[in-house]
Amino acid sequence: MTVLARLEHIVKDFGAVRALDDVTLDINHGEVLGLMGDNGAGKSTLVKTIAGNFQPTSGSYSLDGQPVHFSGPAEARRHGIEVVYQDLAICDNLTAAANVFLGREMMKRVGPFKVLDHKGMNRRANEIFKELKSETRPAALVNRMSGGQRQAVAIARTRLSESKIVLMDEPTAAISVRQVAEVLALIRRMKDQGLSVILISHRMPDVFEVCDRVVVMRRGRKVADKPIAQSSPEEVTGLITGAIQSA
């Protein structure tokens, strides 16, 4: 496996709060990385630093060996880093296709004007949903969709461009068991397509089901980083609570 992104000695302070404390982490091509830890451990901060929402206080960050300094999420997106936000960042009053293309609408020419290409966007969104093997109808409104379908809409957004890393912050937090399975299947499909995925989750079974590697954070520090096959739910639980110092 080759390294796609490398974080070295990353520190992130919010005033007096040290949210990330000397975190060093490699993200490999085509791997699903599980990120676990208690509330406030720094998981979201780490992911937001990778996504360009936050600039680290100190430390270095490189992609494919090139140092990067993202001024914001838009710049990170141009480098192939996509985020599926925790609250899903979806507009309920729009269709699935409109959400997928939000901010990146396909346009077509009508005489001297450029207008929204509804058909084109529906068609492309439908292709992406098929790729993801999700039964999401592009022209249906999102407010009538299940949690799994909404997740598919959020993930489909990341498939519009040539993304390399997809960051998912607790995608399974607020959905039913059947829908969790759907989301996990979506994650596997992204991995099959060669993407790297970072999955933040509180759900131990999810992490052990789809992840190749698990990283545990505690109070801003990385306390474990190992292949999932060499760990166990008991060990991870101990690492999260602090019963086990590090592994």
């Binding site: 309920d92 729009l94 901010g103 346009m107």
Partner: peptide, 28 residues
């Protein structure tokens, strides 16, 4: 009607009304 249904301007108005922070995250 044309502005609301066929232009980005219309689409973004609906998006902002639907979920303003999502619209911001989408770079609108």
């Amino acid at each position: 009607h044309i502005l609301l249904t066929m232009t980005r301007w219309g689409r973004y108005l609906y998006a902002i009304g639907g979920n303003e922070s999502a619209a911001r995250l989408a770079g609108i």
